[in-house]
Computed example of a mutant assay.
Amino acid sequence: MLILLDAGHGGIINGEYQTAGKRSPIWDDGSQLFEGEFNRWIVNSLAERLSLRSMPYVLICPEQRDITLATRVKRANKYASQNCIYLSIHSNAGGGSGFEVFTSEGTTESDRIANFFAEEFMNEFPDSPLRADLRDGDYDKDKNFYVVRHTKMPALLTENFFMDNEFECRNILLTPWGRTKIVDFHERAIVRYIQSIENS
């Protein structure tokens, strides 16, 4: 199983954040989250975990500049003939708290994979809300995000806490402790999914 890891938005080049918006407020202690930096931290740490497990992966956007959605999809779809999944990492905004996992509309294999991510989030953060849509019997939310709609393999997009929620931003998203826990549950979800295939 090949894991395609995509860090949403751009990173930081020579001290300049590459994506307009996509950042937290500046908190009273002067701290601020730049989402693209957070996304890359999670993706790169997850890649290291997969390497230690000898599990193959591809970094869809290894560069720091912001890559267009069409280019991200094109890069991912080069691997469509292989047994693979696509995972896009983000932090949320717009008011709220907790975790969401998105797939394309309809019932697909992506929905089953998303359940592993939701369950492992609840195991890792039992006191934080899982923002789920249970109307179709699973935890994912269906949405026509470009990268999950146009990729040709099972695809998910995770929204990890809210960068405009001061408690979540300062205590989870900006801390090594919180980031490591986010990597932990993503890793476990991937491993559980692959094991479920091998045992089926």
Rank of each mutant, 00 (worst) to 15 (best):
G8Q: 02
H9D: 05
G10I: 08
G10R: 05
G21K: 11
K22C: 00
K22N: 07
R23G: 00
R23Q: 12
I26K: 15
I26T: 15
W27T: 03
D29T: 10
G30T: 06
L33R: 08
E35Y: 07
G36F: 09
E37G: 00
N44H: 13
A47T: 08
A47W: 11
L52M: 06
R53A: 13
P56G: 09
C61Q: 13
C61K: 14
P62E: 03
P62W: 08
R65E: 10
A70C: 00
T71L: 13
A76Q: 03
A76F: 10
K78G: 04
Y79R: 02
S81D: 12
N83P: 00
C84T: 14
Y86R: 03
Y86E: 04
G94D: 04
G98H: 12
E105C: 05
G106T: 11
T108N: 12
S110L: 03
I113W: 11
F117Q: 03
E120F: 09
F121A: 01
M122N: 10
N123E: 12
E124Y: 06
E124Q: 15
P126M: 08
D127L: 10
S128D: 03
D133S: 12
L134K: 15
Y139C: 05
D140F: 02
D142Q: 15
D142W: 10
Y146F: 15
H150I: 01
K152W: 10
L156K: 04
L156R: 03
T158Y: 01
E159S: 02
D164K: 09
D164L: 07
R170D: 01
N171S: 14
N171M: 09
I172E: 01
L173T: 08
T175V: 07
P176M: 01
P176V: 02
G178V: 13
T180A: 11
K181A: 06
V183W: 06
F185Q: 01
H186R: 03
H186S: 01
R188I: 05
Y193N: 03
I197E: 14
E198F: 07
N199W: 10
